[in-house]
């Protein structure tokens, strides 16, 4: 199996879907400039540069999606999506419902976010929860190269608007990626490590932090299960609940700010539907209610790291705490 970076996996998915379905096209700021190979292969009509105009990029995608094309748009950085919110949320997300089901919106809006490039708060804002909270939209945020390819292919084939977040810190991370037809269904979480004592639920870059924490916990005799959500909407509630019902303990980890973040929903889900199985308090580790800083040191402080995850996991099980737990 070839080893690709996340960016290469994304490229592969786009090229394969352009080849598979002539209704697929891609546009955005610098898309044609950066993907000259795709322009040469598929033509300037299907791989286009656009003006720096996120609102009309997204609106054009929504209009095209509703009338027969399957656009993929690159909005570059997640904070730029504020200019695109009307088209994504009010048009693509609502006009199917408003019209009584007359239209569908098969489109993918891609954007990068996350700590790692020291780009600061107007290029790094993990705003995925905004879209999870908006009806009619699916939200994907993978963590491995293979999933970036497989989930992007699934997103392009989906008949709904999909917001596809790329954690920029993962862009150059390598992983094994299956050649050709590799489609990962939306809405299915992955159990990356089996465990008995505590469930660590995460997505994007903090999945690796959870895996590192699980390895550390194992040395302390604690068996942690790690779940990578991959898709934030639809949320794989069954996978989360099945795990929590077995382990009885839950730690949710993400980089986005804690207040009304995806972790709050997962904690509520466990509280509402797996209460009887819980053996300890649910913990959430997430970013603060602060804009993302630029300084590398502050950026890393923003993101829950493995040591904090270890402490949080241990704090759910006071009887096995070997060292004082931090909250």
């Amino acid at each position: 199996m070839p080893t690709l970076t996340v960016f290469e996996a994304i490229d592969a998915a786009i090229a394969e879907e352009l080849a598979r379905d002539e209704r697929v096209l891609m546009f955005g700021e610098g898309v044609a400039t950066k993907r000259a190979d795709l322009v040469a292969r598929f033509g300037a009509g299907r791989v286009r540069n656009t003006p720096l105009a996120e609102a009309v990029i997204a609106g054009t995608a929504a209009g095209a999606a509703a009338t027969g094309l399957r656009p993929v748009i690159d909005l570059l950085f997640a904070p730029f999506m504020t200019y695109s919110m009307d088209a994504i949320v009010n048009s693509a997300g609502k006009l199917r419902y408003i019209s009584g089901g007359q239209f569908r919106f098969p489109m993918v809006a891609m954007a990068m976010t996350g700590a790692g490039w020291t780009v600061g708060a107007q290029h790094n804002h993990n705003n995925e929860a905004w879209f999870v909270h908006s009806p009619g939209i699916k939200v994907v945020m993978p963590s491995t190269a293979a999933d970036f390819k497989g989930l992007l292919k699934a997103a392009i084939r989906d008949d709904n608007p999909v917001v596809f977040f790329v954690d920029m810190a993962l862009g150059h991370v390598r992983g094994e990626v299956p050649d050709g037809e590799h489609v990962v269904p939306l809405g299915k979480a992955a159990v990356l490590r089996r465990g008995r004592d505590v469930t660590l639920v995460s997505y994007a870059k903090t999945v690796q932090h959870c895996l590192d924490a699980a390895a550390e916990l194992a040395t302390r005799g604690v068996s942690a299960e790690v779940i990578d959500l991959r898709t934030l909407k639809p949320l794989d509630e069954e996978a989360i609940l099945a795990s929590v019902r077995r382990t009885g303990r839950l730690v949710v980890v993400h980089e986005a700010s804690k207040l009304c973040g995806v972790g709050a929903e997962i904690a509520a889900l466990a509280g509402e539907q797996a209460y009887a199985a819980l053996k300890g308090p649910i913990r959430r580790l997430a970013g603060p209610d602060a804009p993302a800083p630029s300084s590398h040191a502050l950026e890393q402080a923003f993101v829950p790291q493995a040591a904090a995850i270890v402490d949080a996991a241990l704090s759910t099980m006071p009887s096995v705490v070997a060292e004082p737990a931090l909250s």
């Binding site: 997204a58 054009t60 656009p71 009307d86």
Partner: peptide
């Protein structure tokens, strides 16, 4: 909103 969508609708017709 209609002005942001019309370019996409027209693009579909053309392509």
């Amino acid at each position: 909103g209609e002005l942001s969508l019309v370019t996409g609708v027209s693009l579909s017709k053309t392509m």
